[in-house]
Simulated assay, not measured.
Amino acid sequence: MENLRVFDLNWLRAQRAAAAQPPLRPRVPLWSGASLIGTVEPDLLHQIDLQPLLDGRKQLLKEERDGQPGWHLLGDVTAGLNRVAAALHAADLAGAWRDEQLAVNDQHGVRLGTVERAAVRPLGISTQAVHLVGQTVDGRFWVQQRAFDKPNDPGLWDTLMGGMVSAEDTLATALVRETWEEAGLTLDQLRGMVRGGRVDIRRPCDDGRGAGYVVERIDWYHCTVPEGVTPANQDGEVACFALMDGHALLHKMRDGEFTLEAALIQAALLA
């Protein structure tokens, strides 16, 4: 197998830098009670029309804590954040609406509620994803080309499977569900499943008209896809699957034909 030591390590450093970018503009905390649940650009929430609570209080308050300005979400976290998500969507300040709830955790990783996926980037809420790298017995890689109508990274190449961990999932159940939905495979068809590692992404994104910020933890796994087992997409989010040897994989990664996440994951395996 080719090794990144014979490849372009400047490229690898650039990918790692791309995955650890500061926000384009300053952001302020989004609190619920004493808990930090996200970050926002200071004026973003001024642009939405949010109905007051039943007792007449505003759902969102701009305030300072220890000299730090920020926004305070009042009331139930899930109900409040989903009202904010709907208001962001109405103002064309959210990402693609998914009708999918993601977990909302505090700064210590304690789950406080859930929110529509479309709002997590504008609100700087941390997310979790899972990826699966699949290789044949002879070392080639099964990779997918993302559907051309995907809201993020359309048409780019990706790992065998990559998806979000929804609020209803654990990491283990997301691995099972996404492997079936994206590749039409069950885990008992695969061999040598092992956890490969973790990739952290922090970078600006286009959601919220450029006010979005990605804070994502990706756990990735590696497996062998036995001879005669072929992935087949089930959910319409994959244009096609292909087998690539290490040389082709590295070439396409270098040329920017893979998503940043997939490139970092596969580089970690090959390094």
Rank of each mutant, 00 (worst) to 15 (best):
residue 51 Q to K: 09
residue 187 L to I: 07
residue 122 P to T: 01
residue 112 L to D: 01
residue 248 A to Q: 14
residue 223 C to H: 09
residue 138 D to E: 15
residue 203 R to W: 05
residue 193 M to R: 10
residue 89 H to Y: 12
residue 110 V to M: 11
residue 253 M to V: 10
residue 63 E to L: 08
residue 16 R to E: 15
residue 109 G to Q: 01
residue 105 N to S: 13
residue 69 P to Q: 11
residue 82 N to T: 02
residue 251 H to Q: 15
residue 194 V to I: 13
residue 234 Q to F: 03
residue 211 A to P: 05
residue 149 D to Q: 10
residue 22 P to R: 10
residue 151 P to G: 11
residue 208 G to I: 04
residue 50 L to H: 03
residue 15 Q to E: 14
residue 192 G to R: 06
residue 132 L to T: 12
residue 188 D to F: 05
residue 185 L to E: 04
residue 184 G to N: 05
residue 252 K to Y: 08
residue 42 P to Y: 00
residue 253 M to G: 08
residue 67 G to N: 05
residue 153 D to S: 12
residue 258 F to W: 09
residue 91 A to Y: 11
residue 51 Q to R: 07
residue 33 G to F: 05
residue 31 W to S: 03
residue 221 Y to S: 13
residue 207 D to V: 04
residue 77 V to F: 06
residue 29 P to T: 04
residue 179 T to D: 02
residue 146 R to I: 05
residue 81 L to P: 03
residue 121 R to V: 04
residue 232 A to I: 03
residue 253 M to L: 09
residue 53 L to T: 06
residue 169 D to I: 09
residue 196 G to W: 12
residue 76 D to N: 15
residue 114 T to I: 04
residue 144 Q to D: 05
residue 201 I to H: 09
residue 182 E to H: 07
residue 82 N to C: 04
residue 235 D to K: 06
residue 131 H to A: 15
residue 4 L to T: 14
residue 49 D to G: 02
